[in-house]
Design a protein around this nucleic acid. Structure first.
Lengths: 218, 218
DNA sequence: CCACTTGCGTACCGGGCGGTATCCGGATAC
DNA sequence: GTATCCGGATACCGCCCGGTACGCAAGTGG
């Protein structure tokens, strides 16, 4: 019933069995945590439930994690990485800035429509972060990193163009992030209400407006 | 210790004492609910705590409300009304659409910075709504009403102009709402990171971009 | 003035949750 | 092979919360 796995041992040469055994348990717990947390929400999901979903007990959990928060952060890392990869794909195109905004916007909405549950969780994390100092430190660190990456990409993209926006790329990235979250929320409480196209239009309009308010570059 | 208030009875003439007594209790509970819920969050705040803060007990609570959700909805109504009044003030100006966007945006950020706690609560409601069908129905009804009012104001404002935006006013209102929420969230997890000016810039850019993508009106 | 209604206080139940102390059995070291 | 270690299971505790049944005293209608 539990995760014996006694069969394999280590393949071929050495056996770090003890350590890699625990690593396996940990990853099982993490995986189940994702499932249970998205399904039930961060408040209804109990540690017990997560552990049992993974085929373990609370004992296993507390041997691997200090609290629920650790779980959250690990999940955040995964998702943020995925979103960045997506952004990179779009930005490596050689379309215009406005078109890239459109594409990125459409991609984003498709992504969140495909994983509504994750969106919910994200907001729960965010609100929790705003109430818990310790968690917030960890949370914002990660958000900041993501935003900075977006800003950097934007910076590169705008470099060499004949206009510079009236706000810094960091600010632009922040607003982009905010808009994305706002749309995600909108689609949460009213599913499908913001289509990929609509979101694309918004982002495009934003960048067109930014360009209109820009100063010419040297 | 409890809320006797036996002193007053009804002033002067008649006394609808029984009914207006209960109304008073109810409003006390509502007021305390606002305080406690914003301070502690919708999950940590217990019904007991709310009742005690108002100087009553759970008995009083259950005599006046069916659940916590009812409280939330009453609070929503209050706040939305306030926000609408604010919007009306700005829209009654005769500035340009872009300037009004700027002003409305700045107003909004000032408002949410003045009542961070309420912002938190709002997101908690929203997420809860996305998880609870029944509550969501009530929640979205109110949100829709607010959004529709915004759309109407926008419609009036755009009427008679020599351009029509590429999206409907309802869609524009929705996006505006989304952007506002996104910025609110941003300011929650990173207080002060979106200044009134920055938010104004965003909204302005958006409307400028919309105008650029518009078709000329007859 | 009396019977009845009712808003609210009180006491209590059931249950679930986070956290911990303790124990077991297989892996590890020598 | 034996002593040791440690990941994980089990059992258990304390706490608090939502909800309910009931009692009381103050208001209400005749």
């Amino acid at each position: 019933m539990s995760a014996g796995e006694a069969a394999g041992d280590a393949p071929g040469t050495g056996r770090l069995t003890r350590k890699q055994q625990q690593a396996h348990t940990r990853s099982c717990l993490l995986h189940s945590a994702t499932r249970v947390l998205t399904r039930r929400g961060m408040h209804r999901a109990s540690i017990d439930e997560i552990a049992q979903d993974a085929g373990f007990t609370k004992g296993a959990f507390y041997a691997n994690f200090k609290s629920k928060e650790e779980l959250f952060l690990a999940m955040l890392d995964e998702r943020f990485a995925a979103r960045l990869a997506e952004l990179d794909r779009v930005m490596d195109t050689d379309a215009s800035v406005e078109d890239q905004a459109q594409n990125a916007g459409m991609d984003f909405v498709r992504a969140i429509q495909g994983e509504q549950e994750w969106g919910r969780l994200f907001f729960e994390f965010a609100v929790h972060a705003s109430r818990d100092e310790e968690f917030r430190a960890e949370f914002t660190t990660r958000v900041r990193a993501l935003r900075h990456r977006i800003a950097t990409r934007l910076e590169e993209r705008l470099e060499g163009l004949d206009w510079t926006p009236p706000i810094s790329t960091e600010e632009a990235a922040r607003l982009t992030f905010a808009m994305a979250n706002g749309v995600a929320l909108e689609n949460l409480i009213d599913p499908g209400s913001v289509s990929p196209e609509l979101n694309g239009t918004m982002l495009t309009a934003f960048f067109v407006g930014l360009r209109a308010a820009s100063t010419p570059s040297p």
